[in-house]
């Protein structure tokens, strides 16, 4: 297939996944804001930090509040980080390679884009932000559903999947990293005190609160939450879960093309480190250091995939 087509599919999937993740992040922010306990409003600061747009945000805003952050990340059309920008980019990439999309995929993607303005206006009227975020999540999941249920299992599918998975891994790592620091009360050491509601909110961000109780049958413990989000392959949004998917796609692609590229080695190495990693070692190294390193390697892998196939 055309390199440009593969590239557009890859980014279409990434942007759609990013829109969903932003919706999840904002939902968590709104949830934290109404739960008991003093967070001092720093959940909004952390939300901006996770999204990786702190600098740009504070160029135009004084304070991170429910209003400003929801507007900036959720509703604004004037910055490239926001949900509307992600949807527009996803649709733009999809439209550029329409022939590579099934009609279900296209209609889902285009339908989201067409209805976005109405939904945005409803949300702006002040009452409907949560409904709006739910709608974004629904549309994203409908889209990934259309991908898995209608797309041929050929190279186009693998590039699309990898876009979703690499973006998802990036997001899970960011949620864990930033929340881990921001959520801790200032004078308590990491791993010390635990605010149930706040950790619960992290789990909600990745729809894993039930999964946690199923896997651990224990009260919420930071290191177990970290272990689940990093090392448990059962959790589809865990780092190891996402990377298992990526290596699988690359294996199939290599077999189909009859050639193994550099990115295959990188993906397998990263996956192996997660698959055989232990949470004790990660804490020994320092969770923040581990996650920073993961984000760097995940980024390098995406970059290598682009070099090997998409240019």
């Amino acid at each position: 297939m055309l390199s440009r087509t593969a590239d557009s599919l890859f980014w279409m999937a990434r942007y759609m996944e990013r829109a969903e993740n932003l919706a999840r992040l904002l939902e968590v922010g709104h949830r934290l804001a109404i739960t008991p306990g003093e967070t001092g409003g720093n959940e909004w600061l952390s939300t901006v930090t996770i999204a990786g747009c702190g600098q740009d945000f504070f160029e135009t805003h004084q304070n991170a509040t429910a209003q400003t952050v929801t507007d900036f990340l959720g509703l604004s059309e004037h910055n490239s980080y926001s949900i509307p920008s992600c949807i527009a980019n996803a649709r733009g990439n999809g439209r550029a390679v329409r022939t590579a999309l099934t009609s279900s995929m296209w209609e889902s993607l285009n339908g989201t884009w067409l209805d976005l303005e109405t939904k945005r206006r409803e949300a702006l009227s002040g009452t409907g932000v949560i409904d709006y975020l739910d709608w974004i999540k629904d549309r994203s999941m409908q889209f990934t559903g259309a991908i898995t249920s209608t797309m041929l299992r050929s190279d186009a599918y693998y590039f699309t999947q990898m876009g979703t998975l690499l973006e998802r891994a990036d997001n899970t790592a960011r949620i864990l990293d930033v929340k881990y620091h921001v959520l801790l009360p200032e004078h308590e050491a990491v791993g010390g005190g635990l605010d149930f509601y706040q950790w619960n909110a992290i789990l909600r961000a990745v729809t894993a609160n039930r999964a946690y109780h199923y896997l651990y049958r224990d009260s919420l413990q930071p290191w177990l939450i970290a272990e689940m989000l990093i090392l448990r392959s059962e959790l589809p949004r865990s780092l190891v879960g996402c990377l298992a998917g990526v290596t699988d796609c690359l294996e199939k692609l290599s077999n189909a093309y009859g050639a193994r590229k550099d990115c295959v080695r990188m993906a397998n190495a990263l996956h192996a480190d997660l698959a055989y990693g232990k949470i004790e070692d990660i804490f020994q190294q320092g969770l923040h250091e581990f996650l920073t390193d993961f984000l760097r390697r995940n980024y390098a892998l995406a970059d290598q995939i682009q070099r090997d196939y998409l240019l």
Binding site: M1, L2, S3, R4, A6, D155, F159, Y257, A259, Y309, L310, L311
Partner: peptide, 16 residues
Amino acid sequence: QDLFVSDTVVYMRTTE
């Protein structure tokens, strides 16, 4: 941008 010419032959850039 998907096409290029080399030695008067036209090629397209593909993932393979």
